[in-house]
Nucleic acid binder design. Structure first.
Length: 293
DNA sequence: AACGATCCCTGTTGGC
DNA sequence: TGCCAACAGGGATCGT
């Protein structure tokens, strides 16, 4: 799954599917090789909604064309690309977004909403049927005025320690899962990983965040990194909609790693008790009623 | 300030 | 079989 010489090979590299943090990091690593040092020749915004975090879609085109990419980074699930001229090009994959690298002659996938052509003939294509993702290009001032500065510590590269986490959870009455999903606390955990993390540390998603004992906070802090590392190890696997898991072999491999998410009624892999499902923070949540208290 | 609810959007699914 | 409502999700935004 390593990127080929896409400049000469018309066969596209297709990023992994779902925007869980490990897939975003996998995507970042692949596009970094293709983008870094390249000059941007053409930018097409085909669905204005994808550019909704800029004042005008044309701003994105005008700011990127002719400029060179300096670096490709990541904060949580946001891909942050530094562009010549003190600009930040931000890409969020939403829930159905994928980045593709392809030669210009390679057929386009449906819902190719943004296309960026590089000076070596490679195209970066942003495919996103549900358009929950977005692309933005911000000046330093616009970045500062955006929600980005409030984004919390990256859950993978800057995994919070127990002391820091305890401080953030203290006094909070919202369910612990809501805080795990809050990107202003730590960045990168989505609905699936939130459930998986909570199962591994034995805490129910509904527990008020401030009610966790110091031991539970330590347990939580200790599993976040490993769970995400494990996901990154399998970062090439695909995961589309949950119901789509079974037909796809690779997706099945991913599903086999999940301990609770999407396993309502199935036996807990630890104790055999049927996994239960409830709604927390307006999101489906899965837990083992025996292992998690 | 903190928290919960709503909305955006479309492919897929399940009920009738 | 066919139709259509329900559902999934991340993040912005609004009301309390």
């Amino acid at each position: 799954m390593l990127p080929r010489d896409v400049g000469s090979d018309p066969e596209a590299w297709d990023a992994a599917s779902v925007p869980e943090l490990p897939e975003v990091e996998t995507t970042r690593r692949h596009v970094a090789q293709a983008l870094t040092g390249r000059r941007i020749d053409v930018v097409e915004i085909r669905r204005d909604r994808m550019a909704r975090r800029n004042e005008r879609p044309a701003d994105i085109v005008e700011r990127l064309v002719g400029r060179t990419v300096e670096s490709v980074g990541r904060i949580g699930k946001f891909i942050v690309i530094e562009v010549e001229g003190d600009l930040r090009w931000v890409i969020h994959l939403g829930m159905s977004g994928r980045l593709q690298l392809a030669g210009a002659s390679h057929p386009e996938a449906p819902h190719t909403n943004v296309v960026v052509s590089l000076d070596d003939g490679v195209e970066l294509r942003f495919v996103d049927p549900r358009t929950f993702g977005f692309v933005a290009v911000w000046t330093a001032e616009e970045w500062a005025a955006s929600t980005m500065p409030a984004i919390g510590r990256d859950a993978l590269s800057d995994t919070p320690d127990a002391v820091w986490l305890a401080d953030r959870l203290a006094g909070r009455t919202a369910p612990i899962k809501a805080l795990l999903l809050d990107q202003r606390v730590m960045a990168g955990i989505g609905n699936i990983y939130a459930d998986e993390v909570l199962h591994r540390c034995g805490v129910r998603p509904t527990r008020p965040a401030g009610s966790l004992t110091s031991g539970e906070v330590e347990g939580l802090a200790s599993v976040v990194g490993p769970v995400l590392e494990d996901g990154l190890l399998h970062g090439g696997t695909s995961l589309d909609d949950l119901a789509y898991l079974l037909p796809d072999g690779r997706a099945g491999e991913y599903a086999a790693r999940l301990r609770v998410y999407g396993r309502t009624g199935e036996p807990c892999r630890t104790c055999g008790t049927p996994i239960e499902r409830t709604i927390v923070a307006q999101r489906s949540s899965h837990f083992c009623p025996r292992c998690q208290t």
